[in-house]
Design a protein around this nucleic acid. Structure first.
Lengths: 222, 222
DNA sequence: CAGATGAAAATTATCTATAATTTATGACGG
DNA sequence: CCGTCATAAATTATAGATAATTTTCATCTG
């Protein structure tokens, strides 16, 4: 998420806004007003509009023509939808990536998994978790597929952060280890099956909200 | 594809350009120059830029920052990628749609299939084919999934039109009939299996190119 | 003389500033 | 209390200015 000088202003703005939406700093349904954002970044509103469009393409915002753009709401249904799409697409990607996975890649993935088990907060965990998935999927060499998966990951992360706002304990990555073991043993379909189930896994977990009340929350753990 | 007056100018421009890219009027790799397009539409270049961004989100164009935007190239690899993504996502959609399919919907789908078998050209066929798929998938009520599938259909259509530029004979829709029969019989998984195979089916077919030479072409028939 | 190098010109994308529509808001009159 | 009109705010579009890139062409080197 480094601000590359080569990137266009619109891209940089969209990255910052995406960051805020995913982290929850911008709440679902919040209006995104181009003039305000433009003023904040010391820019004009044209690049801001373009940034908004990018967010919309990622599914992080929705725009109603002539009525402005708002941070996309996400209910449980949306979360499940994203999880199922991820399961379907990541399974496909893994099938194609498997033949090209080297020992070195699997070792890196193993390392990422261990890092995940030691993550101090959700934020850090999400990062290494994404790295794990990217490592084992990228060799499929299907750019469009990988881009779609990335967008879905962002949507997942958004939910993840909203669920574990305060308390956090690093999980033990049973599934990640099992996936890597299967891949090492050349059992691609077994790995695919675990991955699909893993991504779709929606665990119930009691979580304390910002207001202090305890409620039931759902979370993707993958 | 009616030009809705309520839509923003950028949206209307993007629709026209998408049409041209899909139909092949704009060839892969062709540069899209904002000033030229703006002049053609009698508009300024800002809405044109936004239109370009929409095309990029759909995968119909690619933009390199400060270097302009080009019509996305598509080779056989890309076609296969799109086909496999469609297979994975349409299978998912059908699984969720199946419980909500009514007899009325299936009858409409049957009608679309028959219309497909009588289509005079690729263009007409593509339209009813899309209608068939939309009819049986929409009841899944997963907006994000359906939007992704729509984009993939556009990419498929693009290839379809490039393959059958001249000659065309309406195919007999074995698969469509089989899918509907399975759905009528409540055999959802059977329908899903056929659909996934159907979408991925890539048939070889000799096709005469614009230059007159005969070459081998591949086509998605679904 | 062929090819490479580098600077100037033209082209193109990007951004800012300003104007024109459209939508939302609140007051007034029926 | 409801509908209409005026005002305010925000989005959408235009035109002009800036910055980057590509092209051209002349010059230098081998």
């Amino acid at each position: 998420m480094t601000t590359n000088k080569a990137d266009t202003l619109a891209i940089r703005i969209s990255r910052v806004l995406a960051e805020r939406i995913i982290s929850g700093a911008l709440e679902p349904g919040a209006r995104l007003r181009q003039d305000h954002v433009a003023a904040e970044f010391g820019a004009s509103h044209v690049p801001v509009r373009e940034a908004f469009q990018r967010l919309e393409a990622q599914g992080l915002a929705i725009s109603e023509p002539r009525r402005g753009v708002r941070v996309a709401a996400f209910d449980l249904r949306e979360v499940r939808e994203v999880a199922e799409m991820r399961a379907a697409l990541e399974a496909l990607a893994l099938r194609h990536a498997a033949p090209h996975l080297t020992r070195a890649i699997l070792d890196q993935a193993e390392e990422a998994t261990r890092a995940g088990e030691k993550s101090p907060d959700v934020r850090a965990w999400e990062e290494v978790n994404r790295r794990f998935h990217r490592l084992i999927l990228t060799p499929c060499a299907m750019p469009r597929l990988l881009a779609s998966i990335d967008d879905l990951h962002a949507a997942s992360a958004r939910f993840l952060f909203s669920a574990w706002r305060a308390e956090w304990e690093a999980p033990t990555e049973h599934d990640h280890h099992a996936i890597l073991a299967a891949l090492r043993g050349g059992q691609t379909e077994a790995a695919v099956t675990i991955l699909a189930r893993h991504v779709q896994w929606i665990g119930r977990r009691p979580v304390t909200t910002a207001s202090g009340a305890t409620r039931e929350a759902f979370a993707i753990v993958g």
